[in-house]
Write a protein that binds this DNA or RNA. Structure first.
Lengths: 185, 185
DNA sequence: AGAATTAAGTCAATATGACTGACGTAAATT
DNA sequence: AATTTACGTCAGTCATATTGACTTAATTCT
């Protein structure tokens, strides 16, 4: 395993296909769009989730707990099934995380009024406080990111993000985002 | 475990602190910024990484492989140490993923010319092709997300994303993003 | 020339968050 | 009465990350 032969490094030579044509218009066609946006999005998202991660680490919670807490906070009384649908994870994955949140007194389960099979999810006071703290961290970062940008930028960013989402999913997500209260009953 | 008592659900009642004042200006102060941007970003990023994930799954690779491939593609001849710095992961985490990429003929290691301890990283032809395919998927999604937005929106989004990143890290990332070639030598 | 540092890799153990598939129970619906 | 739904659970697996310690080889510092 130690006697692998490494070739000596070559000084990086542009690949044939990467050699730019002298006609700028021709390059635009293939390369018009921003390699750099890919990387900015990567780093931006990392820092965006980093703020909550730091707070949650003190509770020995991770990002999975944050997602659950967030959507329960935003959709009080949500059914387990609907939460699974939003997060696109399996019952088993949710199970462990949810149990820990309930045990920690962050989330509360209540029997459905009409349907006693349901265990509707609510944040406790403590959970509500934590959820707010985390949301504020992320809102502050979003505010900072919009500083100095021209009027209307927030709406542009909103539209941009919405159009990043698979078209089929947009309507559902729009509804989810606006609705203060559960999706079905 | 089965004999837990669930309280009956309460119909969700707004919390005291959440009851909106009749003065809209007062609400703006606390709640000015978009809860919905948080969620849009969550769903947008999920779909954004979903495209490459699907392709990579055919190779039995995951997102970790994508990140490594991407930054090697963009920084040919990068040192392992520098790659660790970019990804902010440990040597051990990188180790396994990198080995799999090398074994699969996606990434190539070459001994440094000046420093023979280095195993500089390059994509192979195959790796280059795969990296391009993945980048194009993401670029296409970014293009679609910018459709119908006013002129200058791309620059606004770029600025927004940059400002989402921790200020201390921005300069480094800017340099990384522009530089076609390694950071040090 | 010898000591210290750096680049890279490795071993071992662990944690988190996800997965599949199967099964069970209670309650609601048909 | 039969079927479906909501929820939970058991058992096993996988991918990606972690920490800490240690090794080897090569370079740099004094």
């Amino acid at each position: 395993m130690t006697d692998v032969n490494f070739k000596p490094a070559i000084s990086p030579v542009p690949r044939e296909e990467d050699v730019a044509s002298n006609d700028p218009a021709q390059n635009e066609a293939e390369d018009s769009l921003p390699y750099d946006l890919i990387e900015l999005l990567f780093f931006a998202y990392k820092d965006f989730t980093g703020d909550p991660d730091d707070v949650l680490a003190e509770f020995e919670f991770g990002r999975a707990h944050h997602r659950v807490l967030h959507f329960v906070e935003r959709n009080p009384g949500i059914m387990v099934t609907d939460l699974l649908g939003i997060l696109r994870i399996t019952k088993q994955s949710l199970g462990r995380v949810l149990k820990q949140l309930v045990d920690a007194g962050i989330i509360e389960q209540r029997e459905g009024l009409n349907d006693r099979r349901q265990r509707l999810l609510y944040t406790t006071e403590r959970g509500h406080t934590l959820a707010e703290e985390l949301a504020h961290l992320q809102q502050r970062r979003l505010e900072r990111a919009l500083i100095g940008l021209p009027d209307g930028s927030e709406e542009i960013v909103r539209q941009f993000l919405l159009q990043m989402i698979d078209p089929e999913a947009r309507a559902d997500i729009m509804r989810l985002i606006r609705s203060p209260f559960p999706l079905k009953d």
